[in-house]
Structure formats: structure tokens, C-alpha cells
Simulated scan of single mutants.
Amino acid sequence: MFLKRITLLRENIPSMKKYPFYIPSIQNLEEIDINNKVTFFVGENGSGKSTLLEAIADKCGFNTAGGGRNNFYDVHAAESSLGNYIRLSWLPKVTNGFFLRAESFYHFASHIDTVGAAHAYGGRSLHEQSHGESFLSLFLNRFKGKAIYLLDEPEAALSPARQLTFLKIIHDLASEGDAQFIIATHSPILLGYPNADILSFDDGQISKIDYEMTDHYQITKYFLQQREKFLDELLNDE
């Protein structure tokens, strides 16, 4: 284990009424203990999970638009508003890793082309691959060894089958390569990774939740088991 604790430095915050401190889950944050090599952040859109993940990446020295410590390129609004107000506790500290931000991955791929580093990602430009292929090229070629990986909605480009492939990659790296993952996701497939910790950002708190209690699992299960009833209630409710 590397990252052990995330602490909000409340005494340094100038105003809890400004973004992102008025987000309920951030406003109520004191400390989060990380006790697992694979930890998921879940919650509705706007619940603060991506905001906190970005702040962790910023504190790690990773490019908050996506990348590691040595990926230097600028993207508008890539600054973290929260990074200066959290403290990360390590045992031991690890500086190797990567921050994947699905929404700005295009810019990272362009950066790799600009610096002529396509050879490190399977020998082909990430722009010359499908979105899902480029994500898998990143996971297979860039992720290795003792490192921390912060991933914001990695399922965005992955089909259900490719999400299962990604689960195997996580397993191999966490169990054999001594890697740590913190993943913000909406995917019930990824959340099913065995023995992972799931932290919910809903209800104004950040708290541990069982897989079967997540909305992602319950809504997906209900939809698959009672699709016609679900859609009738949804579409014909007057």
C-alpha cells in the first residue's frame, strides 16, 4: 500500500461557500483512510468524486489534464481547485503513476504524438486507434511496476467486454506489480472487482458501501431483470 490517508486541511480554506468546498461531500470531508490496493469512488454527477480524484493527482504532481509527472502540456481549466487544501499520507511515498481523465484524453494523445513517444504505447499513435483501443494501449504499455494509478471514468471508451479485459489488467498489476488504483466510475462491471473498497460520495458524505448497495448495481439489476416493467414505468409515467 502506498497512499494511506487523504486529509482536508480545513483550517486553510478561505471560504466553504466557494467551489469546490460547497459540494456536500467535500464540505463534510475530514479524513479518508485508504486500506485497499483497489478503491472505487462512486456517486451521482456533481457529487465530488472526480473533483477529489483530480486533487489527489495534483498533489501527486501528475498533469491534471491527464498524464504522469513528466507529461507537460497545457489544457484550459486543468488547474485543481482542491489540490492545495488536501494532505496525502504515504507509506511509503510513491512518485510513479498516472492520472487518466477520460474527458481530456484526446489532448494527452496529441501530447504523445508531439513528443514522438508513440513507440511507448504499442508503436502506433493513440489517435490512429479507436477510443477503446487507445485506452487499452495506455493500460497495457504505460501501466507497470510500483505505481499509483488515478482513473476518472476509464469505462467511458470501453465496451463491456473491454471492461472485463481491464479488470484483468487491474488484477495483474495490483497482485503482481504492486500497483495501487483509485478509480472514479459509474460502471457496475468495474465496481464488481473482488474485494475492492467502494466509497460513495452521495448523501453529502464519503462513506464505504457494499457493491450490492450501490445505485449502479441495483438499477442495472432491476433493468435487466424487469426491463419491460422498468421502461413502462419510466416512459409512460404521467
Rank of each mutant, 00 (worst) to 15 (best):
G204R: 09
P14V: 12
N35K: 14
Q205L: 10
A196Y: 00
H76C: 01
T39G: 07
L88I: 03
F139E: 01
D113F: 12
F143N: 02
D215W: 03
T64V: 08
E133C: 04
P188T: 07
H131T: 14
E238S: 11
N71A: 13
I206V: 14
F105A: 09
L82T: 00
S130L: 09
N36R: 07
F135G: 00
L167K: 13
E228R: 14
Y73P: 06
H111L: 04
G145E: 12
D172A: 10
L190I: 03
F72P: 00
Y217I: 07
I189D: 04
T39D: 04
S89P: 00
N71P: 02
N36S: 13
H131D: 14
L140F: 06
T114Q: 14
E233N: 14
M213P: 00
E133H: 02
E31T: 14
L173W: 06
L88T: 05
F139M: 10
L173C: 03
T185S: 15
I209S: 08
A179V: 03
L136C: 01
E103W: 03
S125L: 02
G67S: 05
S159F: 13
D178H: 09
L3Q: 04
A55L: 07
S125N: 03
P188D: 05
H131L: 14
L82E: 06
A184N: 09
A55N: 08
A157N: 15
L3I: 11
F223V: 15
D33C: 04
A161F: 08
M1Q: 11
A117C: 03
D172C: 01
F230R: 03
L199E: 06
T95M: 08
S175A: 09
R5I: 04
S81K: 15
G97D: 09
N96I: 00
L231D: 10
Q205C: 02
Y149K: 06
Q129V: 05
G116T: 11
A147I: 04
S81F: 15
N71Y: 12
Y222W: 11
A120Y: 12
S15V: 01
L191A: 11
P20C: 10
N96V: 00
I170F: 05
D215Q: 13
F99D: 01
L91V: 03
L150A: 06
S47W: 13
P24L: 06
T39V: 14
L29F: 10
H127M: 12
Y193Q: 06
P92I: 05
A156F: 07
S137F: 03
Q205A: 10
P20L: 07
L158G: 03
S50W: 11
R87S: 13
G116V: 09
D172V: 01
P92H: 11
L53W: 07
I86P: 02
H131V: 08
K17H: 10
I23L: 15
V38I: 09
K221F: 13
F105C: 08
A65I: 02
L224K: 14
A156L: 12
M213Q: 15
S104F: 00
D232A: 08
A77E: 12
I13M: 02
L9S: 12
D215N: 14
S137P: 02
N96L: 07
E11P: 11
A57V: 01
R227M: 12
K17I: 04
S81H: 15
L191G: 09
Y217S: 11
F181V: 03
S47C: 08
Q180D: 08
G67R: 02
H216D: 10
A65C: 02
L164I: 14
L53K: 10
G122V: 05
F230C: 07
G132E: 05
Y211E: 09
